[in-house]
Design a protein around this nucleic acid. Structure first.
Lengths: 335, 335
DNA sequence: GCGACGCAGGTTACCGGTAACTTCGATAAG
DNA sequence: CTTATCGAAGTTACCGGTAACCTGCGTCGC
């Protein structure tokens, strides 16, 4: 009599019932074509009859492969990431990979902690938001020797796979749209100010500077972005710089909040104040007027990550690469 | 020389370096007080020096406990669930549990599939959205004999732990607010129409019926809810029932979309048409006017789930329970 | 002074799978 | 007819931890 045992149905139970050894049952599940049809059917019958559920911990321990991938995103509540996630998940799940989601709260230290956690789960790959990481995180990744994806932004020195878009160029392009409308006193409104928000702001600055215009009308906060914050910050900006002609908001939440505040103040958009956001979330096409924004191909980011990762996971060579998915400036009613 | 071996640092490597056996190192990590201080420090030093990362698969396999919990939510992109998730995560992670998130896409079949998947990960508990499940899902849960949480809505026959709110009563209460304003021709606008949306609608129906009013002004669709859809459906409703005085929208996205459409049609809210949503998402307090809504205590749901689950995970008795977290009708500008 | 006790740490077996190599019989090739 | 080849299934060992029981030794009470 065994000292321990969970009481769960195991491969051995299936094997006993069918009259084979457990490795055969294991094969029937993983490489069905290697087992004779008759036997396979009897094994399937036994599995259904006994209600066998494989133990992934045992499988991962024995094979050294967990068939799971860690996806770290900055925030679960930001709609920007859910489409990326969907693309990744659809691409990888059909190939038998489980996607484990963790959120860093925009903190590199938390990212480091999560990398540690997921490495202890033996994930087969890591997908990280951004291209900046703590030194310890880099050391962990280095030692683990697994495929890594850095996403959202682009870098000249990718660790491995880099899929993203040029946030700086996108910020500049959106600003140029204001300039093309003949606007000159264009402000920037930003929250959270993570690295990507900084890059967008730098793009705004660069475009204005190149046009010989002032970059003083800028208000940012480290607080998390929200609709309410967009409204409050817009009010502050108008008070401080009453001559503003347009405001480029670092993301769509802020832009929508700013629009609502304009409506409250009976300020015509875009006649009296033009607005634009960033990301192209659903809400930007629904508001009245619709919000100009930079559409980022988030679903495509997810798809491309999944595709490149699968190649690598199936034995492709490790060669650092960088894929620019681009962006599109949407000129809409608010500008 | 071993036949296989991942090359990773293991407990044995730490043990060798310190000059003890691996079970001692294992104890130093899990029950530090059972190991002498001097030894513990030397072990910690060795772990840092070698960069040891525990293998959770091995641990879970040996102990039969994975220290993880599966949280199934209908949709990752719905902000309603992110706060619940946050409460659960904070409560459980401090106790050493990892929360694995899966999304069902509002499908009971997908829920069943996910339950199977997570059972193969040996999760220590399941958290499910809703109180309806497929027969096979129930059988799986039954056999697995683990703590289960059903959330969001309430049931008279909980499987185990049930934390939620009375969606029917909440729908009725919001409708009553319209009635209290003297409104009589009150419509309902719903999308997705999952079980909770149905319950809210039933609450709307019940309140109108009790007041002797018509429930004909109702438009629903199985499509996923969105801002755009809210606007389109509002337009349809106005065309079909031009006499509408107010519309109760099954969720905040629809309500916001409806509000934007009203703005586009230059329809004064609430003077010409009153609106209300459901859930109390951030956006409802930011729009102009702010949207009336039913605030659901999502963070508290998460907190309570974590608290009750921890009790159970730490050996508490299994007795089915039902916790009503309540709701609050927010009377705001749009009504 | 001796047995009970407590504590740090060790021994042994086991969790439930999978890799790698082997066996065995049937078929193909020479 | 013999040998190489191939497919199906088996043998053996191992993945990296942890549970349960055991040992050795210092302390304490009587």
């Amino acid at each position: 009599m065994p000292r321990r045992s969970s009481g769960r149905v195991t491969l051995q139970d299936i094997a006993d019932r069918v009259g084979v050894t457990k490795i055969t049952v294991s094969r029937a599940l993983r490489e069905p074509q290697r087992v004779s049809t008759d036997l396979r059917l009897r094994i399937e019958e036994a599995i259904a009859a006994l209600g066998y559920i494989p133990n992934r911990h045992a499988g991962a321990l024995a094979s050294g492969r967990s068939h799971s991938v860690a996806l770290l995103i900055p925030s679960l509540s930001n709609a920007v990431f859910s489409e990326i996630q969907r693309g990744i998940e659809e691409g990888l799940s059909t190939a038998g990979y489980q996607v484990l989601i963790g959120h860093t709260g925009y903190s590199l230290l938390e990212e480091e902690r999560l990398i540690d956690t997921y490495l202890s789960y033996g994930v087969d790959a890591l997908i990280l938001p951004g291209t900046r990481h703590t030194a310890h995180a880099l050391a962990l990744i280095e030692r683990a020797r697994l495929p890594v994806v850095e996403t959202l932004e682009l870098t000249d020195t990718p660790l491995d796979i880099n899929v993203g878009l040029d946030q700086h160029a996108a910020g500049a392009a959106m600003t140029q749209a204001f300039l093309d409308r003949g606007q000159r006193r264009i402000g920037f409104l930003g929250a959270r100010m993570d690295h990507r928000a900084q890059l967008r702001m730098a793009g705004w600055e660069a475009a204005l500077t190149q046009a010989g215009l002032s970059t003083e009308r800028c208000l940012t906060t480290p607080h998390p972005s929200s609709y309410r914050l967009g409204g409050e910050m817009l009010a502050s900006m108008l008070e401080r710089w009453p001559d503003l002609e347009g405001i480029f908001c670092g993301n769509d939440d802020l832009a929508a909040g700013a629009l609502f505040e304009c409506q409250r103040q009976r300020l015509a958009v875009p006649a009296q104040l033009a607005l634009a956001g960033f990301n192209g979330l659903d809400i930007t096409e629904a508001t009245a007027p619709a919000l100009a924004t930079v559409m980022t191909p988030r679903r495509r980011i997810g798809d491309r990550i999944a595709a490149r990762l699968l190649t690598r996971l199936q034995g492709g060579p490790r060669e650092p690469c960088r894929e620019d998915v681009g962006f599109e400036v949407l000129h809409r009613g608010s500008l």
